[in-house]
Every structure is written in C-alpha cells, then in structure tokens.
Simulated scan of single mutants.
Amino acid sequence: MKKSIFVASLFAAAVFCGSLVYAEDSEMKTENDYATIQLSNGLKIPQFGLGTYGSSEQQAHDAVLEALKDGYRHIDTAHAYRNERGIAKAIKESGIPRSEIWITSKLWPTDYNEGNGAQSIDMMLERLGTDYVDLVYLHQPVGDYMAGYRALEEAVRQGKVRAIGLSNFDLNEKVFEEVYEKAEIKPVIVQIELNPYAQRVEFRKKCAEKNLPVEGWFPLGGSGKGNETLFADETIKSLAKKYGKSPAQIILRWHVQEGFSTIPGARNPAYIAENIAVYGFSLSDDDMKTMRALNKERRFYNGTWESAQRFKDMKINY
C-alpha cells in the first residue's frame, strides 16, 4: 500500500559538506519544501532526488510523473541513460513550473572532445525540452575531460547550465585534483557511489576541503545483491523495527542526516513514495553512530579508472 509522506513542518535545513544543521522555521512547510543543500555558487539543490539509471524512456516518464506527484523536485538523468525525452514529457505533463524542478544530467566522455561539447549540450537541452539544465556532471574521468569541462564552463556563461559537477572522479584522485585546480568556474558538487557499507570517508574529507558537497548514487546498494545485502543487514533491520520504518527508510534517513544529497532509483510507485518519506523522523545520535560503524568501504560497483577507459570511445546512440 502506498505510504503517505509526512512533511517536515518544523525545520529548514542548511547543509554543508556532509553535515546537516537544522534551524527552526516559523512557517508551516508544504510537501514541496524538503531540505536543500547550499552550493558554493549560491544555488540550492534539493537534497532528495529520483535516480533514473537503468530506466527506459517510458519507465523514466512513469517514475518521474509519479515522483513529482509525491513531492520530489530533483530528477537525475544522463545522456548515457537515454531517457531524457521521457523525463521531459513527464515534467510537462505534471503541470509543475520548470523553475520548481531541479534537473541534473551528465555529459558522456565521447561528448568531451573539443567542438563536440557545445553541440552535445544543445542536444541535451532539446531532449529535456528546456532552455537550461540546473546541473551537468562530467560523467567519467576519462577521455578529454578538460575539453568537456571547458564546454560546460562556456554553457554556464551562456546560461544553458547553472552548475557543474564531477561524477565518478573518485576513480582517479589525481584527475579530480587536476580538473578542480584548472577549472575557471569551479565544480560545486561531486557524485560518487555512497551507502552504509561504502561511506567513502577519506574521499569525502578531500571534498570537504574544497567546499564540495557529496551526492550518492546506489544509496541503497543498487539493484540486486547490493540492495539485498543492505536490507538484510541485522543492524539496519533492528533499527527499522525500532523506528517502525523499512530498511530502505533507515538507510535513506542516514544519508539525509549525514547531509548527503541522495538519488535512490525506483520505478514502483509504492517505493517512490516510501523512499522520500524520511523527513518525518530522525535517527538518534547513538543510532547514527551505529550506522557509521557499518562502514566497510565496500563498494557494490567495483569499477576502476583502468576499466573506465573503455568509455572513451563508447558512443551513445540516442
């Protein structure tokens, strides 16, 4: 049965580099007023979003339309997902003003090469049915990543992109440092695999030093074994019983309280509603420590920078 969303009515959240600070809010909150994360360029990204990796165009359309009804205002996609048109259709059908929805997409390595970036960004805008994208990540730290980054910087200057991020650049920290140092318009957020078993503590420290918030993909471990492993964890199951919540909600509440942006993927309407219903309760300080103690720095997707080299020439046919 679809679970109702308990709306946070007492708090406005300010998030800085993985730590979440709450302040009382004198006004009642609406279901659209979930926590946001302050970015270094002045923008605020909705902390909780819907991931669409692995969804077809139709599946993404249906999931996004459902998510927007449930109060989501942050949608994550990518050129490589090949579902941007379905997302554009859902946003249009929702009737929600474009200005109220945060759209994130990603530039694929074969789009990085000098001359390709600008055209690829324009094609992205066309597929998404919008004249700007709120955030665009470089998707992988391979290929001519600096040319891709320069294209994104120019798109920011032209108003086509509002913010730049780096996705999966934890695969090569030397490349991560290079892009950050050479950037004329600094990245404002980093996206990495992040979950209770892979809390990425050391890399998050490097991000914090640069005032870079972290957004986690596979926050529930991803589909298949990762998801099953986390949901079967005895500590997480015990906390779920204690709070009267599902294991997924305990995990996602941990993400929220740690100050991460999180983008769990879901297509089942019940799961879409369940996932975002994490603003009506809090884990105690002791239980947050218990969750942190689960860290094994064990990723469920074991890609490496070397294995990612195959993406340099992997063209995406949209």
Rank of each mutant, 00 (worst) to 15 (best):
M314I: 01
V278N: 05
M288N: 12
I272K: 03
T290Q: 07
P269V: 00
A293Q: 02
S282Y: 10
T304F: 07
T290E: 00
E306K: 15
M288R: 13
S284M: 03
Y271N: 12
P269E: 00
L294D: 05
A293P: 08
R298V: 06
Y271Q: 15
V278D: 02
R292K: 15
R292L: 14
L283G: 05
N295K: 03
A308V: 06
D286S: 14
K289I: 04
L283R: 12
R298M: 15
N295W: 00
N295D: 02
A308Y: 14
G280T: 03
S282G: 08
G303R: 04
R298A: 13
K289E: 05
A293R: 07
Q309Y: 01
F281R: 00
D313Y: 10
R298P: 00
M314A: 13
G303W: 09
N302R: 11
E297N: 05
G280I: 06
L283F: 07
G280L: 00
M291I: 13
M314V: 07
S307G: 10
M288V: 15
F281K: 06
D285P: 10
R310P: 00
P269Y: 07
F311I: 02
G303F: 04
A277G: 09
Y301F: 12
P269I: 05
S284Y: 11
S307H: 03
S307Y: 04
E274D: 11
T304A: 06
T290L: 04
A308L: 12
F311K: 01
Q309C: 00
D286T: 14
R310F: 12
D313I: 06
V278Q: 03
K296A: 04
F281I: 01
M288K: 12
N275Q: 12
M291L: 15
L294S: 07
L294T: 10
